[in-house]
């Protein structure tokens, strides 16, 4: 659960500084992170992750 605190603080940081142009990038990153979390890092997610990072 503590990771949600970090995510909340991260979003608050960018929103608080009105740097909205980061939001698409962050959304992709967080989506990838969420996918990894939900699937437990299953191998069929790996190609997407490696192409991103």
């Amino acid at each position: 659960m503590s990771r949600f605190t970090t995510l909340r603080e991260l979003v608050a940081h960018f929103v608080g500084q009105r740097k909205f142009f980061f939001i698409p990038l962050l959304l992709v990153l967080l989506l990838a992170g969420g996918l990894l979390l939900l699937t437990g890092g299953l191998s069929y997610v790996a190609p997407f992750v490696y192409s991103l990072f």
Binding site: S2, R3, T5, T6, L29, G33, F53
Partner: peptide
């Protein structure tokens, strides 16, 4: 994203 962002956790 793998490590440093989550240091507080």
């Amino acid at each position: 994203l793998g490590d440093k962002l989550w240091v507080l956790d």
